[in-house]
Structure formats: C-alpha cells, structure tokens
Amino acid sequence: MSTHTVKANRRHPDADRQRIQVGHITFEYSSKNKTFALKACEAEHAKDRKPLFTGFIEKGMHKELLRLANVFRRIEEEKDE
C-alpha cells in the first residue's frame, strides 16, 4: 500500500490517486494498483494526516459500502424524535 504513504505522495505527486471526501475522512484510491487508504483529512498536524488504514480493493467491497450508505441515508432521513 506504499502508494498512499506521505513519503510516496511526496516522491510521486502525479501517481494514479483519486480522492473522495466523506465528512472528515478522505478515501484515497488507486485504480491502477487496486488499493485504497482512509485518511483523517481534517487533522491539525501534518504527521496525523498519514493513512489510518490501507488495503486492497477486494471483490464485493462495493456492496458493503452501498450497505453503509443506505444506513447513513436512513439515519439522515429519520425525523428527530
């Protein structure tokens, strides 16, 4: 998962990396390497902006993320009781 480390970002700033921000977490992924990293994008200090977790994009992972998105949608749509 070295594609997503702070050192790799400095050495290869033009590498195949895309980012999607969700709240205060950034999902960084590489289609070429089929890897991803979760980063705390609102961290106060640069040393805390390193990946919290890295991994390979595995078959079926999109279904798990869709399930999470559906849960979030239900929570957002709930009326305050």
Rank of each mutant, 00 (worst) to 15 (best):
Q18F: 08
R17F: 00
K59D: 15
M61G: 06
S31Q: 07
G23K: 04
V6T: 14
P51W: 08
R11F: 00
A37W: 09
S30F: 03
A37H: 08
G55W: 01
T5M: 01
A40G: 04
A15N: 12
A69N: 10
K63V: 13
R73W: 06
T3P: 00
A8S: 12
S31L: 12
D16M: 06
S2D: 10
L66P: 07
N33G: 02
E76Y: 04
C41E: 03
K7T: 00
K79R: 07
L68H: 06
I57K: 02
V6G: 07
M61P: 06
A43S: 06
V22F: 14
P51C: 12
D80V: 09
R17A: 01
K39T: 10
R19L: 10
E28K: 00
C41A: 08
T35R: 01
R19F: 14
F36P: 10
R11D: 02
H12Q: 10
R49V: 02
H12N: 11
K39R: 15
K47T: 07
R19W: 11
L52G: 03
T54Q: 05
D16V: 02
E81W: 03
A15L: 07
L65A: 13
E81A: 04
I57Q: 07
K34D: 00
N33L: 08
G23N: 02
A69Q: 12
P51H: 07
G23C: 11
R74A: 13
K7R: 12
E77A: 13
E28L: 00
T35E: 05
V6N: 13
V22T: 08
T54V: 14
R74K: 15
K59E: 15
C41M: 03
Y29H: 08
E28G: 00
L68R: 10
E78T: 08
F53V: 11
A37V: 04
R49Q: 15
R49C: 07
E44G: 06
F53N: 07
E81D: 14
